[in-house]
Design a protein around this nucleic acid. Structure first.
Lengths: 344, 344
DNA sequence: GATATTTTGGCAAGCGGTTGCCAATGCGGA
DNA sequence: TCCGCATTGGCAACCGCTTGCCAAAATATC
């Protein structure tokens, strides 16, 4: 039988429709002369059927090019095999590695991942999660804008785990802020800085933890510190902050993230500052462009990818799914060229 | 009724299960004393039911916090309301804006988007598409590694559109290579360059079109041109190519993408070349870090975001879905600091 | 006021799987 | 040879929603 065109066997009216119908377990059942339930078992319950018939069924299945329809399966079982990751902004490079880590685990388990943006709005985030719930087996929320109680309520329906920020009511996977910020502060102090600025993101609760900690750490090191707020976690917002940074008289700045640090560096260069002598800058995250910057960015390397894999692993596992735990991963300072002793 | 705890109304055995059951149209039907089919119509077929009962149903629906279950709906209708975008590598910044454009359109229509990586492997790509097919209404393939015929076959089942590369058998949305490359060549020639290198990506068919065109354009401008192959579309691969670029004696290089250009620049700076006088570099794509580079990268600005929106719009529309067309979008040269007249 | 139409709602089948339960078959042991 | 048990496969219900078809009710037509 040379022609592959005949695979529709008894050509129905369906044939003139635009889309070709995919074979179902009923087609397989008919082909081998067995009941669909047997086909289902042969394909999914190892050992439940005679191995000879299992062979026949398997053969027929891939002769027909059968693939299970995940939605049809999801209905009776309640398990769809898809997970969602919801985050404020896909294009923020910080999220790439996190997404990729999650994707890798999902793929390894044969799950599919849907990614959804919230544009940083709590309302959209809530709405998104609710509308996703019926079709997923669990959710990862990254840098959520939602209150812990809301998240707790949402996680009643389907498990939710927090990635990259701590939620007291959920399993969370976070970087070790204390470790990273201590290292950053030590580094600055050791270089001889006496006063530093922290460029924080207004309105992000993830920012609070960082600032509170930075404040404590600075005080205990006898450094003076001020918080300067940027409007968005972007290059432009970072650039716009330079004026205030200079006005504050600090010799070093710790940025909310690398994008902000990039902006600060760019603006400083534009203004003709000598870098890093006249201004030391430390970023946060260590995105791929950090080492491309001039001067190359000293930054806190966040284990984004591992945060993604751990978070995904957690949400997949029914044993860890629902119990609020906290996985903290090392946050390391990588020293490049954007920090130096202040000119005296 | 102060307590919100009572929403389970007649508490079933389901109550002690981990996951809370979400209300269905049956719950609504029972609550208002109507048939589920009426509920379904009230919610989805405007005008099909009496507007008074529609009100009642709607009220009951959101009192119960009802949300339709997309999977249950997908089964009878065959429409799942989700689309997939499959691409070689999520973390390649080139894809961010494209994804985002697609996401925006999807969201605007209330569709959900699933993103899937192929790691640049044709086999994985095919496998991915096939396993996604039953649960999506259409696919976007970005920089596909698959043959046009394979794609054609795949698109029998569910519509597929090609984004950022041309597939003769599918609707495609692509940048205007001729326009962009002409501008790049003109720019180089006008600066006084006589011989240029093209840094191409081995094995990518999207690369062939670029190289062929570059060759033609160079010849017609009386420039000499060589192709230098990089192994991967990455910064490191670009850096590794510097040696060969210098050996070739060219004064300018056109890179496969901005990442490669970044690498070239970085390596050149490390080697102490004076940039851009000793080597002009033009990138491709205009990713966000292009203007962060030092010198800031002259590059071909690809309308990635619009490619994403147009491709998504196309795949959504049954009228355009299936007819191989070609939407070409302007590819513009943005001149920054990485190109200059060669030192004479 | 009787008949023809239109509105409106119910019934039931079906989408493609899964699974509890039962029946038939095959096998071993007494 | 007969009984009991383990294997193996079939039956049918169900997951939540949609939709063709029909009947009852409401409305329009004469």
């Amino acid at each position: 039988m040379p022609a592959d065109e005949t695979n529709g066997s008894h050509a129905d009216a369906a044939h003139d429709a635009r889309a070709v119908r995919r074979p179902t377990i009923y087609d397989i059942a008919q082909k081998v002369g067995l009941n669909p339930s047997t086909v289902s078992r042969a394909l999914n319950k190892p050992g439940r059927t005679n191995s000879a018939t299992e062979q026949r069924i398997r053969a027929a299945a891939d002769e027909l090019g059968y693939r299970v329809n995940p939605m049809a399966r999801a209905l009776p079982t309640g398990r769809s095999g898809t997970y969602a990751i919801v985050l404020p902004d896909i294009t923020n490079p910080v999220h790439f590695d996190l997404i990729r880590g999650a994707e890798q685990i999902a793929r390894a388990h044969g799950f599919t991942l849907v990614i959804s943006e919230t544009e940083g709005s709590a309302d959209i985030e809530r709405e998104t999660i609710e509308s996703l719930q019926p079709s997923v087996d669990g959710l990862l929320v990254v840098a959520s804008r939602l209150d812990d109680e809301v998240l707790a309520a949402l996680s009643e329906v389907k498990p939710v785990v927090a990635a990259n920020h701590a939620a007291s009511t959920l399993p969370s996977v976070i970087p070790d802020l204390a470790m990273g910020l201590s290292a950053a502060m030590d580094h600055l102090r050791d270089l001889g800085h006496r006063s530093v600025a922290y460029l924080g993101l207004g309105g992000a609760q993830i920012n609070r933890a960082r600032w509170d900690l930075t404040l404590d750490l600075a005080i205990s090191r006898d450094l003076s510190v001020v918080e300067i707020t940027v409007e968005a976690p972007t290059v432009d917002a970072g650039a716009a902050a330079l004026r205030r940074v200079r006005a504050s008289g600090v010799t070093a700045a710790l940025a909310y993230n690398d994008l902000v640090a990039h902006g600060l560096l760019r603006a400083a260069r534009t203004e003709g500052l000598r870098l890093p002598e006249e201004l030391s800058v430390i970023g946060f995250d260590d995105i791929f462009s950090a080492e491309l910057a001039v001067p190359a960015l000293t930054t806190l390397h966040s284990p984004l990818r591992e945060i993604g894999t751990r978070a995904m692993t957690t949400v997949i596992d029914p044993a860890q799914n629902r119990i609020p735990s906290k996985v903290v991963l090392p946050l390391e300072l990588v020293v490049r060229e954007s920090t130096a002793a202040p000119r005296s």
